[in-house]
Amino acid sequence: MDRRKSLLLVDDEDSTLEMLAANLSAQFDIRLALTGESALAACEEALPDLLILDVDMPGLSGYDACRALKALYPDLPIVFHSAKTSIEERLLGYAAGGDDYLPKPFDPSELSTKIGLQLSRVDRAREMSGQLDEAMNAVMSTADMVGEAGVALSFQRALNNCHSYDAVAEALFESLQAYGYDGCLQLRGRRDTVSRNSKTQCSALELSLLEHVEQATGSERIRSLGPHTGFAYGSVTLFVRDLPMDRSALDAAAADKAGRALDNIALLVEAMTSRLIALDNEMTSQELAEIRQLIQITRRALTDIADSNHRLQTAVRSQFEELQHQFEESFIHLGLTSPQEDHINLLITENRDRLLGVLKEGQANEDFLGRVIRKLGTFI
């Protein structure tokens, strides 16, 4: 049920106030005042929905009272009631801040019409003001969301240029600060573990908080820590300060902001997890490329060694054969007996075969290394 509107009637003549009240009391709650000063006091006590104000009054005139009231209550509708109806008087009323002018003696239907128009105008203004507030709130909320989306997009672009765990951590903390939050982070990759806050390495207390987030029971990846929130996404553990999951104690705007922040930060962590996997894959690919290069170098080295060993064996055999031939030619001049010649030939042959045997052992080692290299090549 709509509340009855209240009117304050101000006039220094009791008879005028009685006639006004008689015409209006059926529709409105009526209060009366005999002077401009008492009208100000009555408004201070309880502001009416509309004020009907006489112009000529002892003490504070109607125009002066209007100026004083409008300075305090600019939205209060004021209808002047006066026998002075010239255009000059109406301009004075307008300059004082009045909203309408009712001549004396009043016509009841005109009185009701003017009051109704002013009250409707105020109601429409209030309704439009509320709609404007809602629209502005929607615009501001949309602007906030657009700005938050921009932070997420910037983070995605920054990740593409991150080629280390520390660079990924730096990009995340920049985005967190853009959202108005801070905390600490641990990244666990294939090569390394990075634990840090926005400025430096994690303190012992921060490490314990991250460990608590990681070891908390339950399948939820986003975990409430009183007024704070933890994110546990496999290789990424994040603790965000002053971001509560329970938003029941917050006002609507703060609760909405916190809810969006939870969603946005979760998206950042998911993107960061994917980037860590990509970094590990890049590192693995780089290591495989280095292994392939090493195998190629080793293969070339083994080929060179085998060629060198083959040339060495040929040279050794040739040198021993030449040595043996020279000794056989010298036997005639040395006057050696047949047993002595046979003994020297045997020594030469044994040493030749022993040296060639050593070289063959090296060849066997080369063959073994070659088989190892070929086997490794099948795994990459």
Rank of each mutant, 00 (worst) to 15 (best):
E37T: 07
D99H: 09
E361Q: 08
R241C: 14
S175Q: 06
L91G: 01
E89R: 01
N23S: 12
F320G: 02
I277R: 13
Q27E: 03
D263E: 05
L267S: 09
V236K: 01
S6P: 11
E350T: 06
L336A: 07
R292T: 13
S203Q: 14
T85I: 00
E88L: 11
M1V: 14
N345H: 02
S129V: 10
D342T: 10
H310M: 10
F368G: 07
S25C: 12
T35C: 05
K104G: 05
L51F: 01
G97Y: 04
T229S: 14
M19F: 01
D99R: 12
L72V: 03
M245N: 01
E37A: 05
T337G: 10
L267Y: 03
G234L: 03
A71Y: 05
V55A: 00
Q118Y: 08
G335R: 10
L51M: 09
R121G: 06
V151S: 05
T35M: 10
R371T: 04
Y181E: 13
V79S: 08
A26Q: 13
R241W: 11
H163L: 07
D242R: 14
S6N: 13
E134F: 14
V146C: 12
A301E: 12
R126L: 15
E366C: 04
G62A: 13
R247S: 11
T113M: 10
H325T: 06
D182G: 14
L187H: 01
L50A: 03
L7T: 07
A289T: 09
H310V: 05
L276R: 08
V168K: 03
D144T: 15
Q324P: 06
L262N: 12
L376P: 13
A138V: 15
I380R: 02
D56Y: 10
T200W: 10
C66R: 05
D256P: 12
S195I: 14
Q177V: 09
R352Y: 00
H343P: 02
L7E: 01
R190V: 08
A149E: 15
V213I: 15
Q177C: 08
A21S: 08
V122K: 01
N197T: 15
E206W: 11
L279V: 00
A266V: 01
T217L: 06
K199A: 15
S235Q: 14
R299V: 02
Q201P: 00
A232G: 11
L336Y: 06
K199H: 15
V151Y: 12
Q340Y: 00
P339I: 07
F173Y: 12
R90F: 00
L334A: 02
G357I: 00
D304T: 13
G150S: 13
D246S: 07
T337F: 05
S141P: 00
A143P: 02
A253P: 04
I78L: 02
T16R: 03
A42T: 11
E328I: 08
R371P: 03
T337I: 01
L356A: 06
C184H: 15
R247E: 09
